[in-house]
Amino acid sequence: MAIDKNSNGYTFSFAIVMVVVVGALLAVASQGLKTRQDKNATDKKMISILSAINVEATRDNAQEMYDKYVVDSKIIAGKDLSAEAFDVDIKKEFRDKKLAATDRNYPLYICEKDSNKYYVIPVIGTGLWGPIWGFVALESDYSTIYGATFDHKTETPGLGAEIKYASYSDQYTGETVADTSGVFQPIIVVKDGSGSGLNSKVDGITGGTITSKGVEEMTTRTLGVYVNYFNTLN
């Protein structure tokens, strides 16, 4: 029996079969790989937290290193203070337009390295094309930045994507986020090249202005909340 390949019936049947097959294939792939992908995401988060305190971890020893250096974690503000800090998805909460900024959970990771305490703060914001995020580690004076690490989902390679490299994030090391009386001091991203040195300024990325400004916005918005919290401790 010859099939007329230009008939409507054949065209529709072909389209339906194709969509079902492709849909099923992708669904199976997505579900089948989910556990592995989730584990990779968790490992990556641990590696990022550790890299904020300048500890190099690999995917193989992420859990082990995390358990070694991160001694405590908690939520310092938000609507669910008892939640497990590591499991809080700040990206999801940030994207949720219905959730007020004060209702978001603010996790804090307390790390100990060479018997010094460090406080690692996760930040999340918006770049040019999509989300950007990072971790900022403060020294035990609750003010001096010990290390910072940033990452992004879809920023332009060579331009905005440069925020993930040490050449950008190392500029934050040594800057202070609070003055001696505990008043919050934002780190400003500048264009005029005056960012070197410890002056609460860092140099932005050429051709990546919107991403750089996104980093400034997210650190300013988030670190302020934590500085207020640290002030209540003193």
Binding site: L26, S30, L33, Q37, N40, R59, T154, T156, A161
Partner: peptide, 17 residues
Amino acid sequence: NELLKAFLPDVSEKLSV
């Protein structure tokens, strides 16, 4: 992309964009 995310996560990060 799904396969890379599961088996070569570091490459996947580079590729995302």
